[in-house]
Amino acid sequence: MTAPVFRFAPSPNGELHLGHALSALTNQKMAATIGGRLLLRIEDIDVTRCTPEFEAAILNDLAWLGMAWEGPVRRQSEHFGEYEAALERLKQDELVYPAFMSRGEIRGAIMEHEASGKSWPRDPDGAPVYPGTDKQMSKRERQRRIDSGAPFAWRLDTAEALARLPGELNWREWTDGAMTVTADIAANAQQWGDVIIARREIPTSYHLSVVIDDALQGVSHVVRGLDLYFATSVQRLLQQVLGLPQPSYFHHRLVLGPDGRKLSKSQRDTGLAALREAGETPDTVKAMLGL
């Protein structure tokens, strides 16, 4: 019987903080509970912000916490070809389209709409849903703009992707850390609108790379923070249209700062390196996290 596979997947664009520690340790604990394997993935598709120095710091922090994982470490920046192949499939199936509207044009369209007294839909993160105007553009005009070097992003035609599904879209969520109870959660992908799947210069986005990585690494259990709970809807849709296996999910509580917001890498006082320098130990960090 194949052992369950878990993964911890930080981005090396800053230092790890207490929230990352909770996620890493929760993955390790849940994997141990059911005899699973734990993998480490470095999510570094943002080549401008991710650095080898931050990656080295992540590895150092995890080792200090007592984390252990199976090698080799998967670095997304080494696998752009695999993401591009998936993007090409979506293009061939006409499930993505090039979107040329700039941020200023998007803001202008929304402001004009709201000036008439009508509200504009927001996604679960509070950002305005993309207008989708570019979907009406002819193929000839799209190609003309691409050939001219106009900036664009590949967006998922969410309505079309949902229309092609044979049934309802949902995911399996573990409702407790002991992994004894699961629930089927309805995946409401349409609330995100047409999300970015890739950019002209980078053939992927978080949503696309994470589902490809999980499939290629055989990840069976995705354990991560509640801030990504609603994003699961988009990722389940991509898994379905690309014919990828469906993992089970567990979204753990978030570690909040004094202002009640989730921690950020810019809040250095909660960084693991700063806590270590202040004399904290792995055990005291675990106590801070209620572990």
Rank of each mutant, 00 (worst) to 15 (best):
A278T: 03
D123C: 00
A274C: 04
R268T: 02
A159H: 00
N60V: 03
S23T: 15
I106V: 15
E160Q: 05
K286A: 14
R268F: 03
W69L: 08
V181C: 04
R7H: 04
W120L: 09
I110S: 12
T26D: 09
P121L: 07
S119Y: 00
R224I: 04
P166D: 15
L256Q: 10
L169M: 03
V96G: 07
A99Q: 10
Y83M: 06
Y249C: 04
L40E: 11
E112A: 15
Q136L: 12
L162P: 06
G132F: 08
L272A: 10
G193I: 05
D125T: 13
A189P: 02
A32P: 07
W154P: 00
P98V: 05
Q217S: 13
P52D: 07
F8V: 09
R140K: 15
E201S: 12
M179Y: 02
R41L: 11
R122Y: 06
A85K: 14
S266Y: 06
I185Q: 11
D147R: 14
Y229F: 15
E277C: 00
P10M: 04
E84Q: 15
V222Y: 07
L16Y: 06
Y83K: 09
I185P: 07
K286H: 07
R199A: 01
A86S: 02
I45E: 08
P258W: 00
R155H: 02
E201H: 11
S11N: 07
V5C: 15
A159G: 04
Y249Q: 03
A24C: 15
F152D: 03
E168R: 10
P203H: 03
M67K: 01
G35Q: 05
N27G: 12
P72K: 11
Y83T: 11
A127R: 14
N170C: 14
L289E: 09
R122M: 10
E78P: 01
T158F: 04
L162T: 05
V47L: 10
Q190E: 06
A115N: 09
A115Q: 13
D44C: 08
L238Q: 00
F80G: 01
L62T: 08
K135P: 02
R74A: 10
D283V: 05
R103M: 12
G66Q: 08
R276T: 03
G81K: 11
L242W: 01
P247F: 10
L25M: 12
Q76V: 03
R276W: 09
L87C: 02
G167T: 09
F230L: 12
V195W: 00
E277N: 06
V255N: 12
F230V: 00
